[in-house]
């Protein structure tokens, strides 16, 4: 069972249809079960029920989650596979010592995968959908998987199955979500 952490500004918001349901539907169609929980209502006992975790994106103007990074401190000790998408990547970066920095981008753009990984595969160029006002700096020790140092498109933890991607895989790159769900960890 996969936990989808809804990072939108409120529980059951209008944004949930746009940033959470497409991930839920992608997983469902690939045969993976998932449940949605808002980031403000996650309790430790409940988190333990899930095998892996996806932190979803938010609307362009929605940065409330970044004011509540304390609610995500549990990620630092979590040993389960984690995928952070856009806002979710910002959360991972902040929890592991990186910074959330202004870096607006909207629309389809070329993404350079520069390092082979279980999630994104071999180095190559793909097209990804950007929708963010903020990007991240690479937390110390994390590996850059796509983009460049001042423009992090994707990263991973050096030893644990923790990934972040700033573009939205639910648009034209659903294979990334499916691959994360099926990775043998």
């Amino acid at each position: 069972m996969i936990l989808l952490v809804d990072l939108c500004y409120e529980k059951d918001s209008l944004s949930q249809y746009e940033f959470v349901h497409p991930i839920f539907d992608t997983l469902k169609r690939s045969g993976f079960s998932s449940e949605i929980r808002h980031f403000t209502e996650l309790e430790r006992r409940e988190r333990e029920r899930f095998d892996r975790i996806v932190l979803t994106g938010t609307a362009l103007k929605d940065n409330d989650f970044a004011e509540r990074i304390d609610l995500f401190s549990w990620l630092a000790e979590c040993r389960k596979p984690i995928l952070g998408i856009c806002a979710g990547m910002q959360v991972i970066s902040a929890v592991f010592g990186g910074q959330i920095v202004p870096q607006p981008a909207i629309g389809l753009e070329a993404i350079s995968i520069i390092r082979e990984s279980a999630l994104l595969g071999e180095p190559r160029e793909i097209e990804g959908y950007h929708l963010h006002n903020y990007g991240v700096t690479l937390p110390e020790g994390f590996l850059l998987l796509a983009g460049k140092p001042g423009e992090v498109e994707a990263f991973c933890h050096p030893a644990r199955p923790i990934f972040g991607i700033v573009f939205h895989p639910e648009v034209r790159n659903r294979w990334i979500i499916e691959r994360f769900a099926g990775l043998p960890f």
């Binding site: 746009e18 497409p22 539907d25 103007k61």
Partner: peptide
């Protein structure tokens, strides 16, 4: 704010 509640 921009909402696309039928997205994908």
């Amino acid at each position: 704010w921009c909402f696309n509640p039928l997205w994908q």
